[in-house]
Amino acid sequence: MIGTMARKPVAREAVLDAFESLLIEVGERAATLDAVAKRAGVSKGGLLYHFPNKEALIEVLLDRLDDLATADADAMAAADEGAAAYFIKSSVWADTPLDRAIVAATRLAEVAHEETRQRFAAIQQRWLQEIAADVGQAMAKPVLYMGDGLYFNAMLSVGPVPANETAADVAGLLAAVDRLRG
């Protein structure tokens, strides 16, 4: 047809990335379908073609989280340094795809989204299983809490945390893990 250009295909991942970013930046209530479409640079109809409603977007975001967390737990299980040390070292905010998926999903959990809470519980159980295989059942939760504390303190810091300070925190926690191993 003369005068008509083929429409660019809607990038499903771009829409999902836009939703994830909006959740991180402004929270669940402001991450409307209109806002997601605008951020992704697509029409609302283009968004609805791939995601008929917000719950469909949430479901795919949670699937992304599951995939990333599974890959992370597999890497943790295979780590030469042990699962506990891997967990501590990877508990530093690095703006990775897993970091972003966790923070976005946390915004959903904040509004009591039950499926999100269930997915987080399953992820945490897998992490605990891998850590327990390394340092024992009694020490698994303390290691999990060490990593979680490191992660959330870095994420909530007012400004960038100096690399030497983060490295010192990680080294201190790794020394504690060695003491836990006895």
Results as ranks from 00 to 15, higher is better:
Ala30Ser: 09
Ala14Gly: 05
Ala30Thr: 07
Glu28Asn: 09
Lys44Gln: 07
Glu165Gly: 10
Val10Gln: 00
Tyr86Trp: 12
His113Asp: 11
Lys54Ile: 02
Met155Cys: 12
Ala105Asp: 07
Leu47Gly: 00
Val111Met: 14
Ala78Val: 04
Ala83His: 00
Arg117His: 15
Leu180Ile: 07
Tyr151His: 09
Gly3Asn: 06
Glu165Ala: 13
Ala175Asp: 12
Tyr49Lys: 11
Val161Pro: 01
Ile123Arg: 01
Asp72Ala: 12
Ala175Lys: 15
Glu28Ile: 04
Leu68Gly: 00
Asp67Pro: 11
Tyr151Cys: 02
Ala71Met: 12
Ala94His: 10
Ile58Trp: 00
Asp80Ala: 14
Leu23His: 00
Ala78Lys: 15
Met146Ala: 07
Met146Asp: 03
Met76Asn: 03
Asp134Pro: 03
Ala154Lys: 14
Ala83Tyr: 03
Arg117Thr: 14
Ala37Pro: 00
Ala77Gln: 06
Leu61Thr: 02
Gly172Met: 08
Gln118Cys: 12
Glu13Cys: 08
Asn53Ile: 00
Gly41Arg: 03
Asp63Cys: 10
Ala84Gln: 05
Tyr86Cys: 03
Ala56Arg: 11
Ser21Ile: 05
Met5Phe: 12
Ala167Ile: 05
Arg126Asn: 09
Gln118His: 15
Thr96Asp: 09
Asp74Met: 14
Asp80Thr: 09
Lys141Trp: 15
Leu62Thr: 00
Ala154Asp: 14
Leu22Met: 05
Ala6Asn: 11
Leu23Arg: 03
Ala112Asp: 15
Ile131Cys: 02
Ala176Asp: 10
Met1Lys: 10
Arg181Ser: 02
Arg119Ser: 12
Ala79Gln: 09
Arg126His: 11
Leu57Lys: 01
Ala122Val: 11
Pro142Gly: 03
Ser43Phe: 01
Ser43Gly: 06
Tyr86Leu: 08
Arg12Gly: 01
Ala132Trp: 00
Ala31Tyr: 04
Arg117Cys: 14
Lys141Gly: 14
Ala56Cys: 08
Ala94Tyr: 07
Pro162Met: 08
Leu128Pro: 00
Gly149Cys: 08
Ala176Met: 14
Ala168Trp: 08
Gly136Asp: 05
Ala40Asp: 00
Met76Ser: 05
Ile24Thr: 02
Glu130Ala: 05
Gln137Gly: 08
Ala31Ser: 06
Glu13Arg: 15
Ala121Thr: 11
Lys44Trp: 01
Arg126Ile: 06
Ala132Ile: 00
Leu156Trp: 14
Arg107Glu: 09
Ala18Asn: 04
Asp34Trp: 09
Gly147Ser: 08
Ser43His: 06
Gly3Arg: 06
Gly182Leu: 12
Arg181Asp: 06
Glu115Ser: 10
Arg181Gln: 08
Glu59Gln: 11
